[in-house]
Nucleic acid binder design. Sequence first.
DNA 1: ATTGACCTTATAGTAGCTTTATAGTTTTAA
DNA 2: TTAAAACTATAAAGCTACTATAAGGTCAAT
Lengths: 135, 135
Amino acid sequence: MRIGQLAQLLGVETQTIRFYEQQGLLPPPDRQDNGYRVYTEKHGERLAFIRRCRILGLSLAEIHELQSYQDDPHQPCTAVNALLDDHISHVRSQITALQALEKQLVSLRASCNDDREVEACGVLAGISEGNMHQQ
Amino acid sequence: MRIGQLAQLLGVETQTIRFYEQQGLLPPPDRQDNGYRVYTEKHGERLAFIRRCRILGLSLAEIHELQSYQDDPHQPCTAVNALLDDHISHVRSQITALQALEKQLVSLRASCNDDREVEACGVLAGISEGNMHQQ
DNA sequence: ATTGACCTTATAGTAGCTTTATAGTTTTAA
DNA sequence: TTAAAACTATAAAGCTACTATAAGGTCAAT
Ligand SMILES: [Zn+2]
Ligand SMILES: [Zn+2]
Ligand SMILES: [Zn+2]
Ligand SMILES: [Zn+2]
């Protein structure tokens, strides 16, 4: 299986696959005589794993760590759980921050009652003067 | 006022100020004979505006756009509102995505009942097999 | 005269790719 | 048969919003 087929199979760009190889997330495949990469099913599974992790918002470093656990499966899984717990709390704090941000933006947006000149618009004035209902 | 003072006043690094100048967000200040930048209050206000926008999560491109409205204040403010509405919906979709993500991560985390070997851990199995309670 | 604090420019690094440039290979069509 | 298309390769730059480093010039004080 060549890189283009693998890419299509998983809905990834070929450059992304080469990038993962370069980053050490995907083992270097064998090459044909012409230098073309040849992939096996194993590569497909590994790539699928990477993509699912990315969809879960895990960083490449975190994925790397998870892979190291997979490659040495006779440890206790506490490290896996710790990684996931960390990531969950990271996601939660992002949510909290964005919700606070949304509040601010909505209240700022409400300070314009439409169809004025920019000069008189409460939005720009609100940003300029810093009355952004802090926190 | 020199760059260091301005930086301290606004809680920004001096490189950040030079960076904003280079990006066209902050007008190039006058220079002393020795080449040192000299800032006025206007610069301070402009920098404060930039920083408040950044705290609101606006991109430098969006800030640039807002500045262009400020610099031509006799248009209707519809463009300002449109920009803000776009940004709000962007933030909201981020929140929605992160909440869905949190759900997935929590359910994945629940699939490990602790203290197993990695081999038997439901977390890695869950990612590998893709039973991630999709959506 | 030398230390230290400040300023200058230029360059590289961060994350996770995407895009571009340039070139070689294979497949398909005229 | 040959020329175009589709595919592959590597290397390098671009993206965002900075941050950090290097190598050096300027200024006040000791
Ligand atoms: Zn994480
Ligand atoms: Zn308005
Ligand atoms: Zn935005
Ligand atoms: Zn487990």
